[in-house]
Write a protein that binds this DNA or RNA. Sequence first.
DNA 1: TCGGATAGGCGCCCA
DNA 2: TGGGCGCTTATCCGA
Lengths: 242, 242
Amino acid sequence: MDLVEFAASIKAALNSNLSVVFACNCVVNYSGRAESYLPSGDRIVIIKPDKTLIIHQSNGSNPVNYMKADTNHSIITGKGGVILKSTNLKESMHTEVQKVHFFHAHLLNDTEKIRIVGTERDMANHLVENPSLVSKDFKPLSTEEHTKYGFIDVFGYDANNNLVVVECKRYVGNLNAVTQLRRYVEKIKKAKGLTNVKGVLACPRISPNALKMLTDWGFEFVSLKPPRYLERFDKHQRKLDF
Amino acid sequence: MDLVEFAASIKAALNSNLSVVFACNCVVNYSGRAESYLPSGDRIVIIKPDKTLIIHQSNGSNPVNYMKADTNHSIITGKGGVILKSTNLKESMHTEVQKVHFFHAHLLNDTEKIRIVGTERDMANHLVENPSLVSKDFKPLSTEEHTKYGFIDVFGYDANNNLVVVECKRYVGNLNAVTQLRRYVEKIKKAKGLTNVKGVLACPRISPNALKMLTDWGFEFVSLKPPRYLERFDKHQRKLDF
DNA sequence: TCGGATAGGCGCCCA
DNA sequence: TGGGCGCTTATCCGA
């Protein structure tokens, strides 16, 4: 497809709610929350009906350049090529298109949303249903994250009526997770005027540095994996293989 | 393109280092770090030469499903449709393709890397070159992040030879930034046996809660925007408009 | 809209 | 390879 046809096609598509997909040789400049410059090369460009623009190089799962939804896109044709000019309130991007490898504009019908299981919230609910995973004497009170004491994953008491704060992490517990737990414990101590508040970090495993900081601060580590209710699908699928 | 042709085309493309781009109606199942299920709908699918797979719905800048680089992709054809089976060491994904709207496999030549200005590191360098932005008497020592005391943005002394630790944030300083700064200051105090170590959080602005915690801990807020050396490009481009 | 926190975060650097 | 952390983080959720 030549640049003249490209300019006409993309102009038409941008006035619809089609999804635009093309590959081209281009130069990209961005100015907004930062500044960036990407010299000439072949990339894949997608403009979605919500006016999100993403530009992908041939590696990695993140776009090299992008503009968020509700961006205005316009086409400027000149002797130097075609420029896709994308602007919103705080940012602007210029994509100088030199050569178009292919172009498609297609209506995508999709009303579905992804369902994900195995999040931090799922871990918290799992702990409330199985309090012995925290400790023999743990009595959970709530998973209400937005208490007035902060956004705490699980909250409860031990046998001596000491408050227990549990922070869940899906993956490896690190220094940040420990400081977060510490912040919650201190907040509750101050708010309630208590000196004995237990802190528990529940995650599949924990980094050595984080474990040291955790024990230095008198907190506990509980090994816990996120629940995986759908794990059967893989086996199920295998049965359906043709 | 019918499913038979699609199966043959994608098989051929997967054995090359072409970038594969297609739109289709599909159902996606994922199992790995979590589990997910995405019912039938039209999406854009990209498989890159590095074997990254991304699936995009018609909104937002992130893929709804994805597999990272170095994933193995295979095609299974059956009476129910074509299944793209993607697996790596810890994860698996099944994309059941029901209908193909378009398909492209293209060689993308791109050796360029993006250059970004206005990062946190740029802020740190800017402070070293303009120490008075921190305070009248600030004498910067280094921007070496990976000291044995932690990954500290800027490090220096004040007029009384007190150590000063500066943490930079590109955007709004929040509770997490303050706890991070606090962790660094405490680590240095302990390691060096000091009682007077200053902590400075440098960012464009700061949330009220974070400011309270910052001052409670005796730290300081310095208002600082990330430097934007390339800001002229936009004006420059405007001159070049045809 | 802002603030706080998660994410199947990703990607980069360094020990 | 794993830990630590920035990111034009994006996205969600509650106040």
